[in-house]
Amino acid sequence: MIGFFEPLRARTLALRVEDITEIGPLIELSTGDRYHIVRLRAGQVEAYAGEVSALFERPVQLLPADHATKLLYVSADIEGAWVTPAPLIGWALCLDGIIRPVTPAGVDDGHLHPPYGWFVETDGRIYACGDTGRENAFDSEDELKAAVFRWWQNDQPKPSAEGDKA
């Protein structure tokens, strides 16, 4: 059973995926609330935008990962890039069709949104989990860290020239 949960409003909608016939477009109110009309076999409910996103990111099938694979999260700051590893125990095929990594903390190491990290395959090569829009494979952690640091540097705001003041 897949459930919608909104803890701030003390609301729980327990719905089975097979009972959902349609999820309507996003409706935005002037109050800032955003929701979808979810049509069911018997009636309909309003589900907040975050609830619908969480629904689509839930696994419908789990596949075990090879025991030698691991998940890497790479971060960067002004001093360089560093790697935080996590054991990769499986892969989750989610309702939205995206395959996400599974660690002991859960799907995508307990996070719901990208970035999904990188995984080290049994041959030692490192591959992106999902589409990064950039390079997707590296031969070593050092190459990966160098690339992430380079991307971080390129994403930083550029200082304005001295004569640009209005």
Rank of each mutant, 00 (worst) to 15 (best):
Y73H: 15
R34P: 04
S75G: 12
R16D: 15
A128M: 01
D139P: 03
D109S: 05
T103L: 03
V60D: 04
A10H: 14
D33I: 11
L40P: 14
H67G: 15
D108C: 03
P157K: 05
P157R: 07
G124Y: 15
A128S: 15
L144R: 02
E28Y: 10
T103P: 07
P114G: 02
E6L: 11
V38Q: 11
Y35A: 05
G50Y: 13
F5D: 13
Y73E: 03
A47L: 07
E51S: 11
A147Q: 08
E51Q: 15
E18R: 08
K165Y: 13
E143L: 03
S30D: 13
D123I: 00
E51I: 09
R125V: 10
G117V: 11
A47D: 05
I27H: 10
E28M: 14
L13K: 02
S75M: 03
V83C: 13
Q153P: 02
R16S: 07
L8A: 10
S75C: 02
A47H: 03
E135D: 12
C94L: 01
F4I: 05
E28T: 08
P59Q: 03
I2E: 01
H36V: 02
E28D: 06
D131F: 00
E22G: 07
I23K: 08
L29M: 11
L29E: 14
G117Y: 15
M1Q: 10
E135S: 11
P64N: 07
